[in-house]
């Protein structure tokens, strides 16, 4: 896989992960409104995800990877 190989991604591939994160964000935003206790915890978890993913992607080393995500 060197120069010349250009796999263009489809819209589905581009937006698959963002949609999952987006849906979880909505779950998180609504959960804490519905109730306390477990609902709050669910909200915290699902809203932590985008923050964690951000730091994961920005912080990870640029090592050669064998598998695409």
């Amino acid at each position: 896989m060197m120069a010349g190989v250009r796999r263009h991604r489809t819209l589905g591939q581009i937006f698959a992960a963002p949609i999952v994160v987006g849906v979880l964000s909505v779950v998180g935003l609504v959960a804490a409104l519905i109730g306390d206790g477990w609902w709050d915890a669910l909200s915290w978890l699902s809203l932590t995800l985008p923050v964690l993913l951000y730091f994961f992607f920005v912080g990870r080393r640029n090592r050669p990877r064998l598998t695409g995500k």
Partner: peptide
Amino acid sequence: YAPSMRKLDFGTY
């Protein structure tokens, strides 16, 4: 975002 990411993986930095 779509055209910008056409050739990139999600989370590319």
